[in-house]
Design a protein around this nucleic acid. Structure first.
Lengths: 165, 165
DNA sequence: CCTGAAATCGTCGTTGC
DNA sequence: GCAACGACGATTTCAGG
């Protein structure tokens, strides 16, 4: 699929907001909230799906209530030739929920989720084989999963005079 | 709601796996995949919802295709009395997708998402008012949103002899 | 937990603006 | 090109065993 960025109007963003809040809204209810007929919203939603803006629909599982209350961030500075991304497959580390390549000193940023401190310790030991770790245990999460929102209309974030400050 | 951790059997985990992959599965299709009748799976799903294991159903929006291709992690070391958590409301920073309180040196870990480098620069300047920043721009994301999976049956991650190594 | 029937919803083709 | 109307098919839900 070619990567074309669709032009989203206000109605599209309204639809995205509703479906990010409740992915199981019927086209009937969704149509009422955005002031469109059910077939009209169905058409728009289908276009959003086909263009990839809507990547899918997921049930959100509360990890704590599913028996995995501990999470952490792990910055990795991979040993040359032993980078986690190249020497292992994702199935070897089911506790790793996300892997991001970073700029800067750290090679990658990992997000992990485990059942207990014992699991976390064991995971850190296994990850340590692949490089230098910098771990941050999450004490609590203020919020996450905030919906993607339309960019601010005043697109210019700061006004500065030319030259160095 | 009291925080009771439900006992999930193999069928529950199977249901959770399917609904995390596709949150819009009908009870008909879901029943076929887990070998249950539609009313039976509907009952199980309803119990999972009411117990909070299933926190909700969300449409997953691809931020890049929605015009916000840049993301970053921000570790904050809040200035005393100016902690971001206490002096601002979340609406003041719509670019912040997640806020986690951390152990260790950093006060909090933020996950941010913006439309351009100019936005990112402006956001960093605004966040800088609240404490010391340590920013990590994401170059690419290997994967994220991996589903919550059942804990491994061999719950003991490592075997070690007593005493210091 | 499975089988049947009624109500609701999604889908499709058509028409009108 | 987009939105509203109407009929068919599927799904959800409730009753009973």
């Amino acid at each position: 699929m070619t990567f074309q960025e669709r032009n989203l109007d206000a109605t599209d963003w309204q639809i995205l907001a509703e479906l990010q809040a409740d992915g199981r809204l019927s086209y009937n209810q969704l149509g009422k909230r955005v002031n469109l007929s059910p077939p009209a919203v169905a058409d728009r939603v289908r276009r959003l799906e086909e263009s990839g803006v809507i990547a899918g629909y997921r049930a959100e599982v509360d990890p704590a209530r599913a028996g995995q209350p501990l999470s952490a961030f792990v910055q990795m500075r991979c040993t040359t030739g032993r980078c986690l991304l190249k020497t292992t497959r994702s199935e070897d580390f089911p506790e790793v929920l996300e892997i991001h390549k970073l700029s800067g000193n750290s090679c990658t940023m990992l997000r992990v989720r485990v059942a207990s401190m014992l699991h976390l310790e064991g995971l850190f030991e296994r990850l340590g084989e692949h490089g230098e770790l910098n771990t941050h245990v999450v004490l609590s999460t203020e919020f996450e999963g905030r919906p993607v929102q339309p960019p601010a209309s005043d697109a210019r974030p700061v006004t500065r005079s030319a030259g160095w400050s």
